[in-house]
Each structure stands twice: as structure tokens, then as C-alpha cells.
């Protein structure tokens, strides 16, 4: 069963962890204690999750773990939670105290940068990933040298503006975040390690490579934006929006990550150095 879960769950990859941080919420306006966040998590699960989902994006057009559409301050968000939004499906939750509503906000704030993939795959115990043992003796400075040199990582990834743009920005890959549900919280060590050793295991949606081949043999690669029973919409590698009818295609589907596996290509020491360096990147 665990193995099946490992295969099915849209899990964590190096890419996945970073994508969500690219569209952050406004700067946090309060400091919250872990107890407040945990209280907010419980209240969210009991009262919000049915609609907003475990992922915060269960309501079309609303992404609670990324940004609020109608509020700027935490008090505004708490007010909406307690009073609802007239004319929409958002009901009032007047039974929550103001403090409880703020704790829900605390939880929402804490979820910034935590992708759905991270939460739903965190039960995964199989696959690469040795946890704390992987970073024993690691050195961030050596890791940085490796990242920018022999590792070739900057060819695709950038850190604080330096590097390529075809892969995810890793400037905040080591961002601290609390544990929640299936998500073991920070550090993201096992997931990062797995992403280095097995890049195709899980890839953030926006970094998955999709390929279509027409009946006349033309191949197009890019990012899958949307799909339905009869058609496919994508952003191709030349940044053109393209739409294809499946009836015109010989084949279509995701292809493996363009990132090479570093399994066997790095020594344990090098991997530890690289991981320690990545964990030091907090945005």
C-alpha cells in the first residue's frame, strides 16, 4: 500500500517546494505561536476543509495558501471568516471567537510555500531519502561550490538571481515551515534529497514537461496548462500558447524530468554538502 501511495501521490520534488513560494502572501503581520497555528489547523480542518480542501484551493479561484483576494490585514481575514461574504458561498462562522478566527489566519499564514504535493505525499516512506543522516558532516560553503560548479545546477536553477531559468528558483528551498498533517514540516530534507536522486518521482505541475506528437510527426514540448476529453492546451517551449485536438495527435503525455539523476554521481560527502547548502537557502 505504501508503495502504491508513493507512486500515486503527487509528491514532493525540489521543484514543487519552490513553486508555491513564488507567489507569496503579503508579509506576515503578526507573530504566532506554534500552539496558535495548531489550534488554527484544527479549526480549519473542522470548519473550512470541506470546501477549501486540504490544499487550500478547493474553491475555484481561491488559493488560501497563496493569497487572499479580499483582505490585506490578518484582522480583515478573521472578519471574513467570522462574518462570511454576502452573496457568495462563504458562510459566516460567528460561532468562532475573534481569537479563534485569528488562529485560523495564523494557520493559513503558516501554509505559505507548502504545496499540496508536499502535504499529500508526506506519508511516503519508500524511495530515496535518509533524513538527518544524509547531512551529517555537510558543509554549506562546499555545497555552494558544488552547486555552482561541478554539479551544474545553475545551468537550470537560480539562487538569488544567479543561474538558469528553466528549472525552479531555489532561493527559498530551505524555508522553515511547520509540520501539518501528513507534512512533516521543515526541514524538507527527505524530499530535497529525493528530488536530487530521483528527479522524475514527483515534479511540480508547472515544471512537468508535456509532449504531443501530431499524426504528421511534429513533436511539441512544453508545459501542460489544461486538458479535457477532446483537447489539450499548453505553453510550448518557445513560449507560444498552443491548443491541440487529441484526434489530431498520434501520442501525448508527460515525459520524464529534464533534470538528471545524481544517484551515484555524487559522493555521500558531496550530497551532504549540497543538502546543507540548499537547506540554508531561506529566501
Amino acid at each position: 500500500m505504501i508503495k502504491r501511495l508513493f507512486v500515486l501521490a503527487p509528491g514532493v520534488a525540489l521543484c514543487a517546494l519552490v513553486v508555491a513560494t513564488a507567489a507569496p502572501l503579503r508579509a506576515q503581520q503578526h507573530s504566532y505561536t506554534p500552539a496558535e497555528i495548531e489550534e488554527g489547523r484544527k479549526l480549519y480542518d473542522a470548519n473550512c476543509g470541506r470546501c477549501h480542501n486540504e490544499t487550500g484551493d478547493g474553491v475555484t479561484g481561491v488559493e488560501l495558501f497563496k493569497q487572499f483576494r479580499r483582505a490585506t490585514s490578518d484582522e480583515d481575514v478573521a472578519k471574513i471568516i467570522r462574518e462570511g461574504i454576502p452573496g457568495t458561498s462563504m458562510p459566516s462562522h460567528a460561532f468562532l471567537t475573534s481569537t479563534q478566527a485569528l488562529n485560523v489566519v495564523a494557520f493559513l499564514r503558516s501554509m505559505v510555500g507548502v504545496t499540496p504535493a508536499a502535504r499529500s505525499s508526506a506519508t511516503t516512506t519508500g524511495g530515496p531519502g535518509r533524513g538527518a543522516a544524509a547531512i551529517a558532516g555537510g558543509d554549506a560553503a562546499r555545497g555552494k561550490t558544488l552547486f555552482e560548479g561541478k554539479g551544474g545546477c545553475t545551468g537550470c536553477h537560480r539562487v538569488r538571481g544567479n543561474g538558469g531559468q528553466t528549472g525552479p528558483d531555489l532561493s527559498a528551498i530551505g524555508q522553515v515551515r511547520p509540520a501539518r498533517g501528513f507534512d512533516p514540516g521543515s526541514p524538507n530534507l527527505p524530499q530535497i534529497e529525493r528530488a536530487i536522486l530521483d528527479p522524475s518521482a514527483d515534479i511540480a505541475p508547472s515544471y512537468r514537461v508535456f509532449q504531443v506528437v501530431t499524426r504528421t510527426g511534429t513533436t511539441t514540448r512544453g508545459t501542460l496548462l489544461n486538458q479535457d476529453t477532446f483537447s489539450i492546451q499548453m505553453l510550448d517551449s518557445t513560449q507560444n500558447l498552443r491548443s491541440f485536438m487529441k484526434a489530431d495527435l498520434r501520442e501525448f503525455g508527460f515525459v520524464p524530468s529534464p533534470m538528471p539523476s545524481y544517484e551515484g554521481k555524487l559522493t555521500s560527502q558531496e550530497l551532504a554538502d549540497l543538502l546543507v547548502y540548499l537547506l540554508s537557502l531561506r529566501g
Partner: peptide, 25 residues
């Protein structure tokens, strides 16, 4: 008046309404 459910389960699909786009595996 409050939801009486236990913890909401994790799933890959939006529970109630489709998202604006679908790029699921």
C-alpha cells in the same frame, strides 16, 4: 451548527467544483 466530521481526507481532485484548469496526472 459547526461541522461535525473529523479531519478532512487528502485527495488529488477538487472535491466539489473543477478548478479553472486541469493539469493533473
Amino acid at each position: 451548527g459547526q461541522l461535525f466530521t473529523g479531519g478532512f481526507p487528502v485527495m488529488a481532485l477538487p472535491a466539489l467544483v473543477p478548478g479553472a484548469t486541469n493539469d493533473r496526472l
